[in-house]
């Protein structure tokens, strides 16, 4: 980068009043990065363990059934739902719709409400299935 440090940057995060759309935008990147690293690693581990042996698979399940495994599982599933819902929101925004202040705020909040609801529903189904 050939940026001259003496030149001012345009005002960024610091000058805006916080709104849900800012949180959702940041969460999209955070959840995406989390899924792409931790989520992908857990997914590969699960598959490789299943392909290796019953012992390797039992080892994976030992960790997954542990308290930290459940915390990571709940976290990853919430990240998946949050990333998916705000990804769908981005499709609408890509089409040039949904930029009105009220509409934009409403659907930003709905991605947060939706991701928590879907995470609760998924884990209700998982626990109910046992």
């Amino acid at each position: 980068m050939h940026r001259n440090p003496s030149r001012p940057l345009s005002p960024h995060l610091t000058i805006w009043r916080w709104g849900p759309h800012m949180l959702v935008s940041i969460l999209h990147r955070v959840t995406g990065t989390g899924l792409a690293t931790l989520g992908a690693a857990a997914f590969v581990w699960w598959l490789v363990a299943a392909a290796t042996s019953a012992e390797a698979y039992a080892d994976f399940l030992d960790h997954a059934d542990n308290w930290y495994g459940v915390v990571i599982g709940v976290g990853l599933s919430w990240a998946f739902f949050q990333h998916s819902l705000s990804g769908i929101r981005h499709f609408v925004l890509d089409m040039g719709a949904g930029y009105e202040l009220g509409v934009n705020k409403f659907w930003s909040v709905m991605t947060l409400v939706g991701s928590i609801f879907l995470t609760a529903l998924l884990w209700f189904l998982i626990v109910g299935g046992n």
């Binding site: 997914f43 590969v44 490789v48 299943a50």
Partner: peptide, 13 residues
């Protein structure tokens, strides 16, 4: 590398 590992695991099973 990650995709290849996962891909091979599926094929092996």
């Amino acid at each position: 590398a990650g995709a290849a590992l996962a891909f091979f695991a599926i094929l092996k099973i």
